[in-house]
Design a binder for these strands. Structure first.
Lengths: 148, 148
DNA sequence: ACAAGAACGTCTTGCCTCAGACATTCTCGG
DNA sequence: CCGAGAATGTCTGAGGCAAGACGTTCTTGT
């Protein structure tokens, strides 16, 4: 047909693929009673500890108020604790608790399994190539705050 | 390379890359006075015409009410028209107008340019491989309504 | 033809997110 | 020490999205 459907198809393929994988991870997280965003926050806290709320929000592209309610919920469930920096009493440093870390580890393992399963159709070279291309794309585009 | 953080990294790389490219497309769309979602809807209307509102919303993973407000805005600007199917008076079939099609074409061209620019670092084989892998991933995951 | 049920679009309510104002605390200059 | 200015976290109002109820219209069975 006449269709100029060359479109920006890669963009939407990328979007859909990311959506599906993120959804798969989210499913694993919810299987353990965590919303996807909760898991993301816990992951960040575990991987890069010591950040203030502001820094954390910025690194995740989350609004400060949104992050606040997230932390409220997580703190209520005993998965994180707001620490007061003795050197600067303005700063609240969220710290993941042992329970939180245990839960995070469990979910992370499940996510790795799922991802490995989804990527199982590819050879190691292909997967590596995929990573390389994604990194290239990310590097070629400006950073506008991840917006989750 | 000390990368023990095998994590589910591909998921997040995918997410970030998709985010960036989607953002780039959105920028092009907004440059012409369209929100990204408006452009997506127009694109769908142009590519697969004749769908009812419900079908359209389902195919895009958009909630029916959200789609309604979107169509309201687009109709107000004369970019689409709600047609009444004479065979079934319940059905409202949104149709893109000439103005809408013209605008859509313009934005689409801009998006193709941007995407080609971003993917310019890859060879044709690499790009093809990327598409193939993305399609594979999409095919391997269940369809849970794209949730835009 | 008629009634029961389903399907579709529209309207209303509640939740979540974001932008902005506010209080508290630190830093720096005097 | 004290005060002006900046930075951080928290609180409040506006807007967008999603779930549910409603009216209309089609279909099916009798």
């Amino acid at each position: 047909m006449h269709s100029p459907s060359i479109d920006s198809e890669v963009t939407w393929l990328l979007h859909r693929a990311a959506q599906r994988m993120r959804c798969a991870s989210g499913e694993q997280a919810e299987k353990h009673g965590l919303a996807l965003r909760d898991y993301i926050v816990l992951n960040a806290l575990s991987k890069t500890p010591g950040l203030t709320q502001g820094e954390l929000g910025k690194s995740l592209g989350l609004d400060k108020t949104t992050l606040m309610s997230q932390l409220d919920g997580l703190e209520r469930r005993g998965l994180v604790v707001r620490h007061n920096d003795p050197r600067d009493r303005r700063l609240r440093i969220p710290v993941i608790t042992e329970d939180g870390e245990a839960l995070r580890t469990t979910v992370a393992a499940a996510c790795v399994t799922v991802e490995a399963d989804l990527l199982g159709a590819f050879t190691a070279d292909e997967a590596q190539s995929l990573r390389h291309m994604l990194v290239t794309i990310i590097g070629a585009t400006p950073d506008r705050g991840s917006c989750l």
